[in-house]
């Protein structure tokens, strides 16, 4: 019962956030240079007055702003995100077509960055005073300071151009008609570079955070208690320090996972990865505002989903919250 009401309240909150994003979206469309009808007409490549007037009426642009907002929201409720004249397709179809590739990329990058980040942070904390610990932190700082897209380009330069180990761009080999496992392996090969380069920055974030968190937990009284019990250092690290240190990492991971979707724009652009990030770049190049804002909405939606997910994980990990409920 408690869980039901918890889930209900979370959903309500998510819906409110989405509503706010839609309203923001609506006003951003109106901020866009020029009359939306002109913009749309421009996108459609037509400029005659009759066509523009038709557009005006069709999209209710001759109505008052609140009415327009209402139409916009009603449209979204029926999953109508507008039409992209440039691509000659409904926005929703375009996004849904590209979404799986982005989910695959960000999912892989998330797992890589979180896994490696936590392990590296742990090692760095345990070797805080040794050169190996400093080396890990030095690398983390380096990746933290490197532009995402530049790392991607350098990776292409080294691993594709100079070494020729991995494909430089795309989702799978063009013209290959491999199916099943062979196709999956092909995709996986194409995934390695984009996922790793997207993950590197976030890995640096998690490494730094895990280390700082572990060092601060190590100062706490219960760690001294564990030592007074005669527990071996390894056990203290794993059971007492790491578990407590991971709590803030979970929260951070939720926030970052969402930001990763935004960061994917850069990675997908460099690697020509056919996801919504690449689509966003295309929309940008063509000043296709309907599509741009539709993608923006889906990015926000993904962030909210990630946040809800980490919220659940946090609840499982920290007994104090369950009881407080």
């Amino acid at each position: 019962m408690r869980y039901l009401s918890l889930i209900a309240s979370r959903l309500l909150k998510a819906v409110l956030v989405l509503l706010a994003i839609l309203i923001l979206n609506f006003f951003l469309i109106h901020l866009a240079p020029g009359d939306p009808a002109m913009v749309m007409a421009g996108e459609a490549g037509a400029t005659d007055a009759q066509f523009i007037a038709d557009l005006r009426e069709r999209f209710g642009l001759d109505q008052s702003l609140p009415m327009q907002l209402w139409h916009y929201l009603a449209g979204v409720l029926t999953l109508d995100f507008g039409y992209s004249y440039r691509q000659q397709m409904p926005v929703l179809d375009l996004i849904l077509e590209r979404l799986p590739a982005t989910l695959l990329l960000t999912g892989a990058a998330f797992v890589i960055s979180l896994g490696c980040g936590i392990v590296a942070g742990m090692l760095a904390a345990m070797r805080a005073k040794r050169p190996s610990g400093s080396l890990i932190m030095g690398l983390a700082l380096l990746f933290y300071a490197t532009p995402l897209y530049w790392v991607a380009m350098m990776a292409v330069l080294v691993f594709s151009v100079f070494l020729g180990w991995l494909p430089a761009y795309g989702y799978d080999t063009v013209g290959s008609d491999a199916t099943g496992l062979a196709h999956a392996l092909d995709v996986a090969e194409h995934l390695i570079l984009p996922a790793t380069t997207l993950g590197l920055f976030f890995m640096a974030v998690y490494t730094r955070m895990t280390r700082a968190s572990m060092l601060s937990v190590a100062q706490q009284d219960f760690v001294k208690t564990a030592r007074a019990k005669g527990l071996a250092p390894g056990m203290i690290q794993r059971r007492h320090i790491l578990r407590n240190a991971l709590l803030p990492i979970i929260t951070l991971a939720g926030l970052q996972a969402g930001q990763m979707v935004g960061g994917a724009v850069l990675t997908e652009t460099v690697f020509a990865w056919p996801g919504i990030g690449r689509l966003m770049y295309e929309a940008l190049m063509q000043r296709d505002y309907n599509l741009l804002l539709g993608i923006f909405f889906f990015c926000a939606l993904l962030v909210i989903l990630f946040n809800m997910l980490t919220d659940v994980i946090y609840r499982l990990a920290d007994p104090r919250i369950k009881e407080a409920a």
Partner: peptide, 20 residues
């Protein structure tokens, strides 16, 4: 919180694109 929820790079892109 609302502004933190919005993916910030995507929002920056949209804002700059729309404001020119």
């Amino acid at each position: 919180e609302f502004f933190q929820t919005i993916p910030n790079f995507a929002l920056a892109i949209v804002l700059v694109a729309i404001m020119e």
